[in-house]
């Protein structure tokens, strides 16, 4: 599996990508059991074949307008800082290979998204821009601790 391959998904009409080797599987949307006293973007937990997984919403993580979940939403199960978690996104649109020539670093990127979250920007054709996420840095150590706490309370 190539390192340059990304699973591309939509989020509020923007295009994002996650390295394919970080992704365990993709689930259709299912009911999430909310848990109290967590940050806004942590939606709750799901049961995946007997394993309890915390799930969070990328829209809220990125301060994009939140929406009602529908059956078209998907949960991507990802490996993130040595943990397995679910991430809710609008829809999966593509799997793409991004060549080094089509890769742009975050150097000039505006402040809208924290630079730590990003690997860079991928370009496909003349009009496609894919914001490539660095999953291992998406959550800060404090947020990771909180997520761990979510698992612990339910274990």
């Amino acid at each position: 599996m190539s390192e340059n391959q990304y699973v591309v998904f939509a989020l509020n009409e923007q295009t994002y990508g996650i390295e394919i080797n970080k992704i365990k599987e993709v689930l259709s949307y299912r009911n999430i059991t909310p848990i109290p006293h967590v940050q806004e973007f942590v939606k709750g937990i799901i049961n995946l074949r007997g394993v309890i997984l915390p799930v969070f919403d990328l829209r809220e993580k990125f301060r994009l307008p939140s929406v009602e979940y529908t059956m078209f939403h998907v949960i991507i199960v990802v490996e993130l800082s040595d943990r397995i978690m679910g991430v809710i996104v609008d829809e999966i649109t593509d799997v793409l290979e991004i060549q080094p020539d089509d890769f742009q670093t975050t150097e000039y990127m505006p402040p809208g998204l924290q630079k730590e979250f990003l690997k860079g920007v991928g370009k496909k054709g003349d009009d496609m821009m894919i914001i490539l996420l660095d999953m291992d840095r998406l959550l800060s150590p404090e947020e990771l601790e909180l997520m761990d706490a979510v698992e612990d309370t339910t274990a």
């Binding site: 509020n12 009409e13 923007q14 990125f62 301060r63 994009l64 742009q104 000039y108 990127m109 505006p110 402040p111 809208g112 998204l113 920007v121 370009k123 003349d126 009009d127 821009m129 914001i131």
Partner: peptide, 18 residues
């Protein structure tokens, strides 16, 4: 292209700049 919650980037000479 919009970028995150409220920023925009524009493709200028093959590069996306804010």
């Amino acid at each position: 292209r919009s970028f995150g919650a409220d920023e925009k980037v524009y493709r200028f000479r093959g590069e996306y700049v804010p």
